[in-house]
Amino acid sequence: MKSIALLHSTIRGDEKLILEAARRKDVDMKIIDVRTEVLDPYRYEADFDLVLERCISTVKGTHATRFYEAIGIPVINSGTVAAICEDKFLTSLTLLKHKVPTVEFVMVFSLEQALKAIRDMGGFPVIFKPSLGSWGRLLSKVNDIDALETVIEHKDVLGSPQQKAFYIQRYVEKPGRDIRSFVVDGKAICAIYRDSPHWITNTARGGKASNCPITKDLSKISRQASDAVGGGILAMDIFETEEGLKINEINHTMEFKNSEAPTGVSISGAIVDYCIQTLKKL
């Protein structure tokens, strides 16, 4: 009988919900801690047929995904999807290539380039983000040239090489909230508003979650973005702008434990169902 492995690097509330959903559906889901695995392609013996990658550590999850795919075990989400979604610059480029509405962005490597790019984008404020990062860490809203010089000097002096690549987004004036849609196999199954008086709306930073109805536009942009990055199980951060909805970021190992109650949707159940469907196709 084919089985699924839940790969983790710590068990969060999200993983507990997935495990509970699997038990409810009588699905055999093995629990594998990536920190105890030796990813040895010569000797690894897998007693499962599909991996659900749920590592809290992006680096560990990415390496493990590459490993399992290389030895012939499919992973949800695939390494291709993970590679695009974990890198904000690559996500933006991919969305642009597929004509999915997204927030204007640019990549630069110096103060001079940054000044030119910001002028071309229409001026301050802009958002600096690490291309790899989450939970709203190290985001900077840069309001003027003084702040720009400071942020870039700090990154140049104190940052790792990755921090010296400056991914800049146009600042989007939001109605005190953004939207996170939960998308499984291209379908937006539910969404939340994340309300916050702060310009960073992550629930990890105190944003409050409430139900957001799935409109035709939300469903459409969610499917377009899912198709662009390669599908699977995704959470999309979406801005409401004067020009319509725009994708901000896409998460490939989404956190959802605070979203089941406000939406009334079993996101964990949908994740398990998608795994079962994928397993049946193997």
Binding site: T10, S134, W135, M254
Partner: peptide, 11 residues
């Protein structure tokens, strides 16, 4: 003791 939150944690 739980591990400290690392730079690449979370989504």
């Amino acid at each position: 003791e739980a591990p400290a939150v690392e730079e690449d944690w979370g989504q």
